[in-house]
């Protein structure tokens, strides 16, 4: 399938998700279950995307584990997003020198 179709579908869906509520939806969602569900969705999605994929992200499980541990520790202490992201890569790189 052409990559153009994939990109168009991807961009179209992403835009509609943002546009429809921003432009048309003015009422509040009443269902408490649905509101709770939407509240947890971002965390659940990111978690499912990260684990176990992060361990295969550097091409070497050893360096990826080092990067993951560093990222979790820094994130635990509320380090800014960018610092966590770059420190994960830096520590995976340094680990790669030794492994």
């Amino acid at each position: 399938m052409s990559i153009v179709i994939y990109i168009a579908v991807m961009a179209g869906v992403t835009y509609l998700i943002r546009m429809i509520p921003f432009t048309f939806f003015r009422k509040k969602i009443k269902s408490r279950f649905f509101r709770s569900f939407l509240y947890y969705i971002p965390y659940a999605v990111l978690s499912a995307m990260t684990l176990p994929a992060i361990f295969y992200s550097t091409g070497n499980i050893g360096t990826a584990v080092v990067g993951t541990v560093v990222a979790v520790i820094l994130a635990f202490f509320n380090t800014p997003l960018i610092a966590v992201a770059l420190a994960a890569a830096a520590s995976a790189f340094i680990a790669g020198i030794f492994i």
């Binding site: 992200s57 993951t68 997003l81």
Partner: peptide, 24 residues
């Protein structure tokens, strides 16, 4: 290759930075 493969973890690092603090 050693640098670009290490950079493969960047996005996942950011995801962890989003999910870990609220989990705590």
């Amino acid at each position: 290759a050693s640098v670009s493969s290490a950079m493969g973890i960047v996005l996942y690092g950011m995801f962890l930075a989003i999910i870990v603090p609220p989990s705590r």
